[in-house]
């Protein structure tokens, strides 16, 4: 579903800014993911080609770190915090509620591509827990009762 659509110029731009001597291969992949919202195979092949590293090495990074996704993500990304502070204030039931509302488990994307549901272990907003992020925007002190309204804000016409 993706091949033709990949614009490798963005990968090349990220590669141009990459300095192998300073470390930051992980950062390079992050820059690439920021462009496409995931790591397309074509882009990783390009990285391997340009850096002279084996593709297996690139994939070992792409699969080790949680920040990376090898699949296209939804138009909105919801991250529910399951850190300790959020856990003791009931984050678990909130996640379940969202899973039920969206019909997907954490780590997956809804069939219509509207939401990707993810979990995160603490985003550092513990003082206003439980929290979740939608597209990087923070929602503090959420509760099961507020889930419906929250999701509706991201309803598309």
């Amino acid at each position: 579903m993706t091949t033709a659509a990949i614009d490798l110029a963005k990968t090349d731009a990220a590669l141009a800014a990459y300095d192998s001597a300073e470390g930051g291969l992980v950062g390079l992949l992050q820059d690439i993911q920021a462009e496409y919202s995931y790591l397309p195979r074509e882009a990783l092949e390009r990285v391997a080609q340009r850096t002279g590293l084996p593709i297996s090495r690139i994939y070992s990074l792409a699969t080790f770190f949680k920040a990376f996704s090898l699949e296209p993500r939804g138009r909105h990304v919801i991250s529910v915090c399951l850190g300790t502070a959020c856990h003791v204030r009931g984050a678990g039931v909130i996640l379940e509620k969202i899973e039920r509302e969206l019909g997907v488990r954490a780590g997956h994307t809804t069939r219509d591509g509207r939401f990707t549901l993810e979990v995160v272990n603490c985003v550092g907003d513990c003082a206003v827990s439980p929290v979740c992020l939608v597209d990087g925007e923070i929602y503090a002190k959420i509760s099961v009762t507020k889930v419906d309204t929250l999701l509706k804000r991201y309803e598309e016409p």
């Binding site: 470390g23 992980v26 992050q30 770190f65 920040a67």
Partner: peptide, 10 residues
């Protein structure tokens, strides 16, 4: 001084 972004692994 270089800045490095982690990859999200405890």
């Amino acid at each position: 001084l270089h800045l490095i972004r982690g990859g999200g692994a405890f």
